[in-house]
Design a protein around this nucleic acid. Structure first.
Lengths: 260, 260
DNA sequence: GGATCGCTTCGGCCGCGGCCGAAGCGATCT
DNA sequence: AGATCGCTTCGGCCGCGGCCGAAGCGATCC
């Protein structure tokens, strides 16, 4: 374990892993760039990570693409990020260097994170569509109906071995968002609707004009045109949701799981 | 994150964290001992871990007790251990220095792990009492009945915000065992029945003679008297379970969740 | 009150590991 | 075939951080 920790403990390697968190494979040169080191230094780091089976290597032509070796590795990195977001700010708040677009909306492995991710989670929680526990989460019966209305089949992932709905701590917002099959399905649906678009070389998600309208109407989340003011927080999201559309069918407060 | 990784990347600190994984608070001297360093070195490490809010400090008399600062930290360490167990053995199999009693049965935060933990999980899975997914797990309806027969109230933890049943990867056995509310309840029940006993200064669990009988009868797990031969693996556990007692009521194979 | 004990702080030693420049190697392009 | 490109290997520099001995400090014991 110490060995693994030491591997994660270098800023260059940590940056590389963070850059790979969405599951894409990146070439060595690009990883050198995100790690802010020369290619030869990066090469050394990548060799270590690959030796430890944290990264998998894919050769293509004269390029060598690296990606996280397994979801287990991703979840390990995620859990460290979560602790890092919560524990350290006291001593080292100064300002994270994460770019604004990343804070707004990004992919986290296969689901949405950032303000978008927690905004969806907050709105759904406020309406009793999802309940969060300390280390688990569940979609309520009314929540299943809501998702069906949103365009996510009721039987999605029923046969899959993955967790259906689980919370994932957001390291920029420091609040949970929705992961698991449901989280992935929500992201897929948003992409399908053309509400958000994946960026080619970062994990950032761009919110389209149609997306801004749709997300406000459905979840009560408002994104201003280009750079965005602060997102309304949970209380106001809940209120707004009550006042606008979709979410206010069978509005029930809090954690009980009303029968549809 | 790199900062956190560096913190975890020192063998001495890693040993300390591992020793605290069951949630107990240990005095500085004892942690120095498990880390195999002098008290003054340990003091430095502990200061760093405490500064980073990974450990919480409790002063009592002239002793200073340290414990993990939060369950989040525990789950982070756990996820690293899980990756360490799976990824590294290829290069560094040579023999773990974990003591045999720890491999047999130990606490993992608040539930059972080691051969005992995975044995229970295997037996229950083989009988369709629990199903494991990639990042989730659930107790089936027959499973709920089985647990009730075992002495665990049907409504245990219903109001808790913790995850009810979740898999936890065992880093000595490299297979999942049962964590969450159910995992904790099973351990509590085993303690209550006098089947296992917590050790004072390690996470090892001692299996009592009554426990050996009970565990065999209920779960089909056999522990020989003192040092134990290899535990029968999943297939044989399933067969044995069919032949002996308790588990064979409404025996159904595999993953379907039969209605009670 | 003095002795002991648990723990911390200080100071200095030393080795591991990250860093880069230079050079090498195979794939690709023209 | 030669030029370029992406990446790796080699070698040497250097600084961070872990380690321990010695000393200090407060609580406890007798």
């Amino acid at each position: 374990m110490a060995e693994l920790g030491a591997l994660l403990g270098d800023p260059a390697r940590a940056n590389m892993l963070a850059a790979l968190m969405d599951g894409r494979a990146l070439p060595a040169g690009e990883l050198a760039y995100v790690a802010r080191v020369t290619p030869q230094t990066a090469s050394g780091h990548l060799a270590k990570l690959t030796d430890a089976n944290l990264l998998a290597l894919e050769k293509r032509g004269r390029h060598r693409y690296f990606r996280l070796a397994s979801p287990l590795v991703a979840s390990m990195v995620e859990s460290i990020m979560a602790v890092a977001a919560i524990q350290l700010p006291a001593r080292r708040a100064p300002v994270s260097y994460m770019d604004d677009r990343m804070r707004t909306a990004r992919t986290c492995y296969d689901h949405t994170a950032g303000r978008l991710g927690v905004g969806i989670a907050d709105a759904m929680a406020a309406c009793g569509y999802v309940v969060f526990g300390e280390d688990g989460a569940a979609i309520t019966e009314t929540g299943t109906g809501f998702l069906a209305d949103f365009g996510i089949a009721r039987d999605v992932g029923r046969r899959s071995r993955r967790s259906f709905c689980r919370p994932c701590l957001d390291w920029s917002e420091r609040r949970p968002h929705i992961a698991g099959i449901v989280g992935a399905a929500i992201l897929d649906r948003c992409l399908e609707l053309g509400w958000v678009e994946k960026s080619k070389d970062t994990r950032a998600l761009a919110i389209t004009p149609a997306g801004a309208r749709g997300l406000d109407k459905t979840f009560g989340i408002q994104f201003s045109s280009t750079t965005l003011p602060t997102l309304r927080r949970i209380a106001s999201v809940a209120n707004a949701a009550g006042a606008s559309s979709n979410l206010n069918t069978s509005r029930t407060s809090g954690r009980n799981a009303p029968v549809r």
